[in-house]
Simulated scan of single mutants.
Amino acid sequence: MYTIFFSSHGIILQLPCESGKAVTATFFTEQVLPNLIKNIKKYRPKIGTRGMKILIDNASSHTTKLTKYFLDIERLELLPHPPYSPDLALCDFWLFPKLKIYLQVKDFNTLQALGTGLYQYFKSIPEEEYRNVFTSGWEG
């Protein structure tokens, strides 16, 4: 399993999760979000996370007090995500269906090979496609 964050410019974070382990609030706030912030600051060196809004689903690790506290400390605004709202789940209706087609014709023997394959696939998507998914009918 991978945690994937993307913006209108492309993939910001692609982080493997330990096989067979659940994504807990501790993992999310100690591994995922710090890596996300570090990568955001690479893409936006002058302004970092200032003014940035993130959209994550309502998984329990995303909605705990620990996660909300971390986001408050980092001044990241969390966009509300109503339960069962696929219209807001950009990964569900745009990125994952594309990725599923790509993965059907690939065979990866190791987690590292999978990570490399995912990275190459995400980089092959033109920035314009990432931008369009945020601007065509989705208001955030």
Rank of each mutant, 00 (worst) to 15 (best):
G117T: 03
G51S: 10
K38D: 15
V105H: 14
P97M: 07
T135M: 02
E127W: 03
D72N: 15
G117N: 06
A25M: 03
I47C: 14
L103V: 06
T110S: 13
H62D: 00
K106G: 02
T135P: 04
P34C: 08
V32Q: 00
G51N: 01
L111C: 15
T26H: 06
L33G: 01
K65Q: 10
D57L: 01
L13N: 05
V133H: 06
F93E: 15
I37N: 05
T24P: 00
R75Q: 14
G48W: 02
E129P: 03
P82V: 07
L78R: 06
R131D: 11
G10I: 00
L76A: 06
L66H: 04
I11Y: 03
L33N: 00
H9L: 15
Q120K: 15
T3Q: 10
T110Q: 14
F27W: 12
T64F: 05
L13R: 02
Y121A: 09
K100Q: 15
L33M: 14
G20D: 00
S8C: 14
E18T: 15
G140L: 12
G140S: 11
N39F: 01
L13S: 09
F108Q: 07
F108N: 04
Y130F: 08
E128I: 15
K38C: 14
F134T: 03
G10N: 03
L13H: 04
R75N: 10
A59W: 03
Y2V: 00
K41F: 15
S61P: 06
K68N: 08
S60L: 10
N35I: 15
L36G: 01
S136E: 13
M52E: 13
T3H: 05
N35K: 13
S136K: 12
D87F: 08
L78K: 06
H9G: 12
E128P: 03
E74Q: 11
Y2T: 04
K68W: 01
F96A: 15
L88N: 06
Q14S: 13
Q104D: 13
P86R: 06
Y121G: 13
E128D: 08
A25N: 05
R50K: 10
P86Y: 09
D72A: 13
A25Y: 01
P126F: 07
C17M: 12
Q14V: 14
